[in-house]
Simulated scan of single mutants.
Amino acid sequence: MFVPLTVVTAVAALLLAAWCGWAAYRDQPTKDWHLIGVAVVSLLALVQLVVGVVQLARGEKPEQGTTIFVSYLVGSFLCLPAAGFLSLAERTRWGSVTVAAAGVVLAVLQVRLYDIWGG
C-alpha cells in the first residue's frame, strides 16, 4: 500500500469534514465550494483505488485478504460521492452534516485499509 497517499487522503477527508462541520454549525447547506472539495477528495480516493488494483495485479497480497481489501477500496471510493449526492438532495444544514460524517468515515476507512494491507 502506498502509505503517503493513504495519509494524504485521510487528512484531506478530515479537513473536508471539519469544513462541512463548520458549515453545519453555522446552519448552512453544502455549497458549490464544498462539492468541489468532495470532488477533490473523491479524486484522491480514485487514485488510491487504482494504485491498490495495480498493486494487486503485480502480485502483491494484503495481509488480511484480497476480498476485504478490495471491498474497502471500493467502499472508500464510493463514500464521498454518495454523501455529495445526498447533500444535494438535502439543501439544509443536514446536507453539510452528511458530508462531514462521510469525511470522517473515509478517514477511518483509510486507517482500516492500512491495517488490512499489513501496516
Rank of each mutant, 00 (worst) to 15 (best):
A57Q: 13
L106H: 12
M1G: 15
S42L: 05
Q28A: 08
G52L: 01
V11H: 03
E60V: 02
D32A: 15
V3R: 13
V108Y: 13
Q55S: 13
G118I: 02
G59W: 01
G59E: 08
L35I: 00
T92V: 03
V11T: 11
L44Y: 12
L113S: 08
T92G: 10
A17R: 04
R91M: 08
L56W: 10
L35S: 08
L16M: 05
I68Y: 02
C79I: 03
L73N: 09
L35H: 15
A12D: 10
I36M: 15
W117F: 11
W117M: 04
V111P: 00
G59R: 06
R58L: 15
P81S: 07
R91W: 06
K61Q: 15
P81Q: 05
G103I: 07
H34I: 00
P62L: 07
G65S: 09
V70C: 08
S96E: 05
W117P: 03
T6H: 12
A82W: 10
L113W: 03
W19Q: 09
G52S: 10
A107E: 10
L56F: 03
Q64H: 10
T92Y: 02
V7H: 09
I36Y: 13
V111Q: 09
L78Y: 00
C79Y: 00
D115W: 11
L16G: 01
I36K: 14
G21Y: 02
V97N: 01
R93H: 04
S71V: 06
T6K: 06
A101D: 00
G65L: 10
L78I: 11
A18S: 12
V97R: 06
A89H: 01
V50M: 13
V8I: 12
Q110L: 06
S76C: 12
F69H: 14
V108M: 14
